[in-house]
Design a protein around this nucleic acid. Sequence first.
DNA 1: CATATATATAAGTAAATAGTTATATAATCA
DNA 2: TGATTATATAACTATTTACTTATATATATG
Lengths: 115, 115
Amino acid sequence: MQKTVVELEKASHVLKLLGDKTRLTIMAILKQRECCVCELLEVFDMSQPAISQHLRKLKDAGLVKEDKRGQWIYYSLNPQNELYDFIQDILQHVPDQTENIRKIEETNPTLRCGC
Amino acid sequence: MQKTVVELEKASHVLKLLGDKTRLTIMAILKQRECCVCELLEVFDMSQPAISQHLRKLKDAGLVKEDKRGQWIYYSLNPQNELYDFIQDILQHVPDQTENIRKIEETNPTLRCGC
DNA sequence: CATATATATAAGTAAATAGTTATATAATCA
DNA sequence: TGATTATATAACTATTTACTTATATATATG
């Protein structure tokens, strides 16, 4: 398989971002399912601004994109990123997040309003 | 190909270690060639203790092993590490270090004594 | 329009991190 | 044995980081 060679500076920046437990978990969840902030809040024992700040860093690095729908902003992995296959190669080693997604869907914050 | 799934805690710890430019470069060099501290000193604009401290962290995490030969300690990647294939998957995206190895061999610190 | 909800931003803080210099340890060699 | 070389450790410091709480912005809804 053809592997993208990533500039060392860029590679270390991405690895530093993924080198945080919360952000790595967010990325692994977003690989399986787009989420808004309030959904991710169900997974982490952390304030809403903390989640928003992590997503900001991931977005600034282009790892994640946002899709504004009504009052929600849905986050997902950004396949346009030049490092996408590098990131995929990393995420394939990270545990499945079905259990965390179950947690989200149990409470289902987005659907509280019935939309 | 069979991919090892790495505990999230362990994965983020390794990614954090590799998320430093100096350490990532060290790992990429060691993938191509074992080195002692004095050799790595040729590559980085940094003090000897700084390099030693980075190697210590990599060793503590099992990413690197040491082989003491005379007054030198040769560092190399540790293939015994349970995360070895995870690390390889990351390093394959990192630029070739031949240029840095040339720098080392130009001065060739280990061979100054003629051993 | 007033209220509620979702999210972002700002400001502050404690802890972690990556470097520094000084010094200790250990092996080699004259 | 004394000097030199290779490396590690200790102590310190500036910077970065990951949170916190308070507040602002934006959308939806009664």
